[in-house]
Amino acid sequence: MLPAWLETVSDPILQATEAPSVEALHGELLRQWGSSEVWRLSYGLHSVIVKRGTDGQYGEGAMYQRFVIPLDLPAPELIHAGDGVLVLADAGRVTLEQEPTAEGFLAAAELVATIRSRSVDGSSEFPPERVKEMAGRIGRIGFDLSPLTEALAGLHREAPTAVVHGDFVPKNLVTDGTRWTAIDWPGAYLAPHLSDLYTLVRDAVSLGHDREPIIARYIEATGTDPALVDRQLLVGGGCFYLVALMFIVEEGLRTIPESKNWIDGLLTELEDVVGALA
Protein backbone atom coordinates (compact mmCIF):
# COMPACT_ATOMS: atom_id res chain seq x y z
CA MET A 1 0.00 0.00 0.00
CA LEU A 2 1.39 3.40 -0.97
CA PRO A 3 1.79 6.04 1.76
CA ALA A 4 -0.76 8.86 1.86
CA TRP A 5 1.92 11.56 1.63
CA LEU A 6 2.57 10.63 -2.02
CA GLU A 7 -0.61 12.49 -2.91
CA THR A 8 1.25 15.77 -2.34
CA VAL A 9 3.49 15.03 -5.36
CA SER A 10 1.08 12.99 -7.46
CA ASP A 11 1.08 15.37 -10.42
CA PRO A 12 4.84 15.22 -11.19
CA ILE A 13 4.85 11.46 -10.52
CA LEU A 14 2.00 10.80 -12.94
CA GLN A 15 3.51 13.08 -15.56
CA ALA A 16 6.90 11.36 -15.37
CA THR A 17 5.57 7.79 -15.30
CA GLU A 18 2.63 8.39 -17.68
CA ALA A 19 0.42 6.48 -15.24
CA PRO A 20 -3.34 7.24 -15.43
CA SER A 21 -3.65 7.41 -11.63
CA VAL A 22 -1.72 6.91 -8.41
CA GLU A 23 -3.63 3.66 -7.89
CA ALA A 24 -2.17 2.31 -11.14
CA LEU A 25 1.41 2.70 -9.90
CA HIS A 26 3.51 -0.17 -8.61
CA GLY A 27 5.33 0.84 -5.42
CA GLU A 28 8.56 -0.61 -4.05
CA LEU A 29 9.83 0.61 -0.67
CA LEU A 30 13.60 0.97 -1.05
CA ARG A 31 14.59 2.47 2.29
CA GLN A 32 12.95 3.54 5.52
CA TRP A 33 14.97 5.20 8.26
CA GLY A 34 13.93 7.52 11.02
CA SER A 35 14.64 10.55 8.86
CA SER A 36 13.92 9.32 5.32
CA GLU A 37 11.60 7.12 3.30
CA VAL A 38 12.39 6.20 -0.31
CA TRP A 39 10.10 4.57 -2.88
CA ARG A 40 10.43 3.44 -6.49
CA LEU A 41 7.15 4.05 -8.30
CA SER A 42 6.68 2.49 -11.70
CA TYR A 43 4.13 2.14 -14.45
CA GLY A 44 5.10 -0.04 -17.36
CA LEU A 45 8.65 0.84 -18.39
CA HIS A 46 8.61 4.22 -16.64
CA SER A 47 9.77 4.69 -13.05
CA VAL A 48 10.75 7.46 -10.63
CA ILE A 49 12.28 7.61 -7.18
CA VAL A 50 10.36 9.53 -4.51
CA LYS A 51 12.10 10.48 -1.29
CA ARG A 52 10.59 12.05 1.80
CA GLY A 53 13.12 13.51 4.22
CA THR A 54 12.95 14.94 7.72
CA ASP A 55 15.62 16.27 10.12
CA GLY A 56 19.00 16.21 8.37
CA GLN A 57 17.48 14.70 5.22
CA TYR A 58 14.98 17.52 4.77
CA GLY A 59 17.36 19.88 2.97
CA GLU A 60 18.35 17.72 0.01
CA GLY A 61 16.31 19.86 -2.38
CA ALA A 62 18.36 22.87 -1.33
CA MET A 63 21.58 20.98 -2.06
CA TYR A 64 20.29 20.23 -5.55
CA GLN A 65 19.68 23.92 -6.12
CA ARG A 66 23.01 24.93 -4.62
CA PHE A 67 25.38 22.29 -5.99
CA VAL A 68 23.94 19.47 -8.07
CA ILE A 69 22.04 21.42 -10.74
CA PRO A 70 24.37 24.41 -11.33
CA LEU A 71 27.51 22.24 -11.28
CA ASP A 72 25.96 19.36 -13.27
CA LEU A 73 27.08 16.81 -10.69
CA PRO A 74 26.61 13.06 -11.30
CA ALA A 75 23.28 12.76 -9.46
CA PRO A 76 19.75 11.68 -10.42
CA GLU A 77 17.83 14.35 -12.32
CA LEU A 78 15.53 16.36 -10.06
CA ILE A 79 11.94 16.28 -11.36
CA HIS A 80 10.24 18.00 -8.43
CA ALA A 81 11.11 19.27 -4.95
CA GLY A 82 8.83 20.62 -2.27
CA ASP A 83 8.30 20.43 1.50
CA GLY A 84 10.95 17.79 2.06
CA VAL A 85 9.75 15.51 -0.77
CA LEU A 86 11.83 14.91 -3.90
CA VAL A 87 10.77 13.25 -7.14
CA LEU A 88 13.88 12.03 -8.95
CA ALA A 89 14.68 10.22 -12.17
CA ASP A 90 15.41 6.55 -11.58
CA ALA A 91 19.19 6.28 -11.99
CA GLY A 92 19.35 2.49 -11.76
CA ARG A 93 18.39 -0.58 -9.79
CA VAL A 94 21.79 -1.81 -8.62
CA THR A 95 23.92 -0.22 -5.91
CA LEU A 96 27.60 -0.78 -5.22
CA GLU A 97 26.49 -2.24 -1.89
CA GLN A 98 24.48 -4.91 -3.71
CA GLU A 99 27.23 -5.68 -6.22
CA PRO A 100 30.55 -4.53 -4.71
CA THR A 101 32.78 -5.24 -7.70
CA ALA A 102 36.30 -3.95 -8.19
CA GLU A 103 35.14 -2.24 -11.40
CA GLY A 104 32.37 -0.50 -9.49
CA PHE A 105 34.79 0.92 -6.93
CA LEU A 106 37.08 2.18 -9.70
CA ALA A 107 34.10 3.83 -11.41
CA ALA A 108 33.16 5.43 -8.09
CA ALA A 109 36.68 6.86 -7.75
CA GLU A 110 36.12 8.53 -11.11
CA LEU A 111 32.85 9.95 -9.76
CA VAL A 112 34.78 11.58 -6.90
CA ALA A 113 37.16 13.03 -9.48
CA THR A 114 34.23 14.40 -11.48
CA ILE A 115 32.64 16.00 -8.42
CA ARG A 116 35.90 17.61 -7.37
CA SER A 117 36.63 18.85 -10.88
CA ARG A 118 33.75 21.33 -10.70
CA SER A 119 34.94 24.84 -9.91
CA VAL A 120 32.93 26.39 -7.06
CA ASP A 121 32.37 29.83 -5.62
CA GLY A 122 32.50 30.15 -1.87
CA SER A 123 34.86 29.36 0.97
CA SER A 124 35.34 26.11 2.83
CA GLU A 125 32.59 25.11 5.25
CA PHE A 126 34.96 22.92 7.25
CA PRO A 127 37.64 25.38 8.47
CA PRO A 128 40.27 24.19 10.99
CA GLU A 129 38.47 25.78 13.95
CA ARG A 130 35.47 23.57 13.28
CA VAL A 131 37.39 20.54 14.56
CA LYS A 132 37.42 21.90 18.12
CA GLU A 133 33.81 23.09 17.86
CA MET A 134 32.58 19.69 16.71
CA ALA A 135 34.61 17.86 19.34
CA GLY A 136 32.93 19.98 21.99
CA ARG A 137 29.49 19.09 20.69
CA ILE A 138 30.34 15.38 20.51
CA GLY A 139 31.78 15.47 24.02
CA ARG A 140 33.32 11.98 24.04
CA ILE A 141 36.75 12.47 22.51
CA GLY A 142 39.55 11.88 25.00
CA PHE A 143 42.57 12.36 22.75
CA ASP A 144 44.36 15.32 21.16
CA LEU A 145 42.90 16.44 17.84
CA SER A 146 45.54 19.10 17.13
CA PRO A 147 47.26 17.02 14.40
CA LEU A 148 43.95 16.98 12.49
CA THR A 149 43.42 20.71 13.02
CA GLU A 150 46.93 21.52 11.78
CA ALA A 151 46.70 19.21 8.76
CA LEU A 152 43.31 20.66 7.83
CA ALA A 153 44.78 24.16 8.02
CA GLY A 154 47.55 23.03 5.67
CA LEU A 155 45.04 21.70 3.15
CA HIS A 156 43.29 25.06 3.09
CA ARG A 157 46.59 26.51 1.82
CA GLU A 158 47.48 23.69 -0.59
CA ALA A 159 44.30 22.21 -2.04
CA PRO A 160 41.29 23.72 -3.78
CA THR A 161 37.89 23.86 -2.13
CA ALA A 162 35.35 21.63 -3.86
CA VAL A 163 32.05 19.87 -3.21
CA VAL A 164 32.08 17.04 -0.69
CA HIS A 165 29.15 14.63 -1.00
CA GLY A 166 29.40 13.74 2.68
CA ASP A 167 28.04 10.17 2.57
CA PHE A 168 29.91 8.62 -0.34
CA VAL A 169 29.34 4.96 0.54
CA PRO A 170 28.29 1.93 -1.57
CA LYS A 171 24.58 2.15 -0.72
CA ASN A 172 24.55 5.65 -2.22
CA LEU A 173 26.24 4.69 -5.49
CA VAL A 174 23.86 3.43 -8.17
CA THR A 175 24.28 2.09 -11.70
CA ASP A 176 21.92 1.41 -14.57
CA GLY A 177 24.50 -0.93 -16.09
CA THR A 178 26.19 1.81 -18.07
CA ARG A 179 26.53 4.89 -15.88
CA TRP A 180 27.27 5.33 -12.18
CA THR A 181 25.48 8.00 -10.14
CA ALA A 182 25.75 9.30 -6.58
CA ILE A 183 22.47 9.62 -4.67
CA ASP A 184 21.52 11.20 -1.30
CA TRP A 185 23.00 14.72 -1.27
CA PRO A 186 21.60 16.40 1.89
CA GLY A 187 24.99 16.43 3.62
CA ALA A 188 26.95 18.09 0.81
CA TYR A 189 29.30 20.97 1.67
CA LEU A 190 32.50 22.69 0.52
CA ALA A 191 35.95 21.64 1.77
CA PRO A 192 39.48 20.85 0.51
CA HIS A 193 39.70 17.32 1.97
CA LEU A 194 38.86 13.94 0.42
CA SER A 195 36.42 12.32 2.83
CA ASP A 196 34.43 10.95 -0.13
CA LEU A 197 37.40 9.00 -1.46
CA TYR A 198 38.32 7.97 2.09
CA THR A 199 34.93 6.40 2.79
CA LEU A 200 34.92 4.71 -0.61
CA VAL A 201 38.33 3.14 0.05
CA ARG A 202 37.35 2.24 3.64
CA ASP A 203 34.38 0.23 2.41
CA ALA A 204 36.33 -1.34 -0.45
CA VAL A 205 39.04 -2.59 1.91
CA SER A 206 36.43 -3.98 4.32
CA LEU A 207 35.11 -6.05 1.39
CA GLY A 208 38.54 -7.42 0.50
CA HIS A 209 39.51 -5.04 -2.32
CA ASP A 210 42.94 -3.45 -2.68
CA ARG A 211 42.96 0.26 -1.86
CA GLU A 212 45.81 1.25 -4.17
CA PRO A 213 44.09 0.83 -7.58
CA ILE A 214 41.15 2.94 -6.36
CA ILE A 215 43.41 5.76 -5.21
CA ALA A 216 45.51 5.45 -8.36
CA ARG A 217 42.37 5.78 -10.50
CA TYR A 218 41.47 9.01 -8.71
CA ILE A 219 45.01 10.39 -9.10
CA GLU A 220 45.02 9.48 -12.79
CA ALA A 221 41.66 11.17 -13.33
CA THR A 222 42.61 14.39 -11.52
CA GLY A 223 46.36 14.69 -12.02
CA THR A 224 46.75 15.51 -8.33
CA ASP A 225 50.10 15.03 -6.58
CA PRO A 226 49.97 11.64 -4.78
CA ALA A 227 51.51 13.06 -1.61
CA LEU A 228 48.77 15.69 -1.44
CA VAL A 229 46.11 13.05 -2.03
CA ASP A 230 47.51 11.05 0.90
CA ARG A 231 47.08 14.05 3.20
CA GLN A 232 43.63 14.83 1.79
CA LEU A 233 42.60 11.25 2.49
CA LEU A 234 43.74 11.23 6.11
CA VAL A 235 42.21 14.62 6.84
CA GLY A 236 39.07 13.57 5.01
CA GLY A 237 38.86 10.49 7.20
CA GLY A 238 39.15 12.57 10.35
CA CYS A 239 36.47 14.97 9.16
CA PHE A 240 34.19 12.09 8.17
CA TYR A 241 34.41 10.56 11.65
CA LEU A 242 33.66 13.88 13.30
CA VAL A 243 30.61 14.40 11.09
CA ALA A 244 29.41 10.83 11.72
CA LEU A 245 29.85 11.11 15.49
CA MET A 246 28.10 14.47 15.64
CA PHE A 247 25.20 13.07 13.63
CA ILE A 248 24.82 10.17 16.04
CA VAL A 249 24.96 12.36 19.14
CA GLU A 250 22.63 15.07 17.84
CA GLU A 251 20.19 13.10 15.65
CA GLY A 252 21.00 9.43 15.23
CA LEU A 253 20.36 8.40 18.83
CA ARG A 254 16.78 9.56 18.27
CA THR A 255 16.11 8.52 14.68
CA ILE A 256 18.35 5.41 14.47
CA PRO A 257 18.60 4.01 18.03
CA GLU A 258 21.07 1.29 17.05
CA SER A 259 23.57 4.01 16.05
CA LYS A 260 24.68 4.13 19.70
CA ASN A 261 26.56 0.92 18.95
CA TRP A 262 28.62 2.67 16.28
CA ILE A 263 30.21 5.27 18.57
CA ASP A 264 33.11 3.27 20.06
CA GLY A 265 34.24 1.97 16.67
CA LEU A 266 34.12 5.43 15.09
CA LEU A 267 36.12 6.90 18.00
CA THR A 268 38.80 4.22 17.55
CA GLU A 269 39.04 4.88 13.81
CA LEU A 270 39.21 8.63 14.41
CA GLU A 271 42.04 8.16 16.87
CA ASP A 272 43.92 5.99 14.35
CA VAL A 273 43.60 8.64 11.63
CA VAL A 274 44.73 11.42 13.95
CA GLY A 275 47.66 9.28 15.02
CA ALA A 276 48.71 8.83 11.39
CA LEU A 277 48.69 12.62 10.98
CA ALA A 278 50.83 13.26 14.07
Rank of each mutant, 00 (worst) to 15 (best):
Trp262His: 14
Gly142Arg: 13
Phe247Leu: 13
Ile248Lys: 05
Arg157Phe: 15
Tyr58Ile: 03
Ser10His: 05
Pro128Gly: 08
Gln98Glu: 15
Arg140Thr: 12
Ile79Pro: 01
Arg202Gly: 04
Trp180Ser: 03
Val201Thr: 10
Arg140Asn: 11
Thr95Gln: 11
Gly104Arg: 05
Pro20His: 02
Ala278Trp: 02
Val38Lys: 00
Glu271Asn: 14
Gly142Asn: 15
Ile115Glu: 03
Gly139Pro: 01
Tyr218Asp: 03
Ser259Leu: 05
Val85Pro: 09
Pro257Thr: 14
His46Thr: 04
Pro76Val: 01
Glu150Ser: 15
Pro213Val: 11
Ala4Gln: 11
Leu270His: 11
Ser36Glu: 00
Ala75Asp: 02
Asn172His: 11
Ser119Val: 11
Lys260His: 12
Ala81Ile: 08
Ala191Cys: 09
Val163Tyr: 04
His80Tyr: 13
Val163Ser: 02
Glu97Trp: 03
Ala113Pro: 14
Leu277Met: 13
Pro226Ser: 08
Arg231Asn: 10
Leu45Met: 15
Gln57Asn: 08
Val201Gln: 06
Gly275Tyr: 05
Phe240Arg: 08
Val205Ser: 11
Asp203Phe: 08
Thr175Ile: 05
Gly139Asn: 12
Ile219Tyr: 10
Gly59Tyr: 01
Asp144Gln: 13
Pro70Glu: 01
Phe143Ala: 14
Leu96Pro: 08
